[in-house]
Design a protein around this nucleic acid. Structure first.
Length: 109
DNA sequence: ACCGTGACGGCGA
DNA sequence: TTCGCCGCCACGG
């Protein structure tokens, strides 16, 4: 029988870092990459995309370096965008503008 | 071992 | 300021 998809050490490190993001705050893919000192924003995004520990791991609190929400929240993705954006607002994350998180909302990992 | 893909980031026009 | 291209690392086939 099939085993569960075993995550790599890198991915686990990413999940652990994301899990440290407090409610009402966010972090960028690049910041996490630097935190775990492994990989880059690209690989971090790929790892979070697999996130088998959701919602245990608040991957929705991870945004792009420019404050934008990112792939899962892509404006062209449809209604999902608003759902996630609203979820962040519900957590108390300040927005600089529509769909853009304020720089002060970034949590220093 | 090699190639293509992907929830990104920085720079140039 | 906005749009587009290249470069970055990790993973699966």
């Amino acid at each position: 029988m099939n085993e569960v998809r075993k995550s790599t050490v890198f991915e686990l490190a990413v999940y652990d870092a994301a899990r440290q993001i407090p409610l009402g705050k966010v972090s960028s893919y690049g910041s996490i990459a630097g935190k775990i000192a492994r990989g880059t924003a690209r690989s971090v995004g790929t790892a979070l995309a697999k996130n088998p520990f959701a919602p245990e791991v608040p991957c929705h609190r991870v945004v792009r370096a420019d404050g934008r929400l990112g792939g899962f929240f892509g404006e062209t993705a449809g209604d999902r965008v608003l759902e996630k954006a609203l979820m962040l607002e519900a957590e108390g994350v300040p927005f600089a503008s529509a769909g853009k998180v304020a720089a002060s909302a970034f949590f220093a990992l």
